[in-house]
Amino acid sequence: MHKFKDLEIWKRSRVFCSKIYAITSKFSETEKFGLTNQLRRASVLILPNIAEGSSRNSNKDFSRFLQITLGSAYEIETQLLISYDLNFINKEELHLLSKELESIIKMTSKFNSTLK
């Protein structure tokens, strides 16, 4: 069993989630139930999946939750690209968020590979 609050991927994901909330607060009100909701939901889901997986008794179970975490991360990546295409975020914001997300994805993948 792992202490999720001590995991660097959880800490970084928490900061990243806050950034997603901040950036989506600037989106058009018409996107409240569209991209805003989808980005926030996917970024929030990363945290509880890491937390829940860490509570499992086997590495195999934890690994399954980390796979779900990666799915949410790739969902966010796609939604950020759509947000850029629709001019909801600029190139710099896309670059910064994508770079942070890529780091989270790499850390999660690497950590997951140690569980197998």
Rank of each mutant, 00 (worst) to 15 (best):
M1P: 00
K3M: 02
D6L: 08
I9G: 02
K11R: 14
R12C: 08
R14H: 13
F16E: 04
K19M: 07
K19P: 06
K19I: 00
K19E: 12
Y21S: 06
Y21A: 08
A22P: 01
K26F: 09
F27W: 06
F27H: 03
S28K: 11
S28L: 12
E29L: 13
T30C: 06
E31S: 11
F33D: 03
F33S: 02
G34Q: 07
N37A: 11
L39F: 07
L39N: 05
R41E: 05
R41N: 06
V44C: 10
L45T: 11
L45H: 00
I50H: 07
G53H: 02
S54L: 09
S55W: 03
S55I: 03
R56S: 01
R56G: 04
N59T: 13
K60H: 08
S63L: 12
F65W: 03
I68N: 08
I68L: 10
I68V: 15
L70W: 02
G71T: 03
S72K: 05
E75V: 14
E75A: 08
I76L: 09
E77W: 00
Q79M: 10
L81S: 09
L81W: 03
Y84T: 13
D85E: 14
L86C: 13
N87C: 08
F88T: 03
F88Y: 15
F88V: 07
N90C: 08
E92P: 00
E92A: 15
E93K: 15
E93S: 15
L94P: 09
K99Q: 10
K99S: 14
E102H: 12
S103I: 15
I104S: 07
I105H: 02
I105E: 02
I105D: 01
M107K: 13
T108V: 12
T108R: 01
T108Y: 00
S109R: 04
K110L: 14
K116L: 14
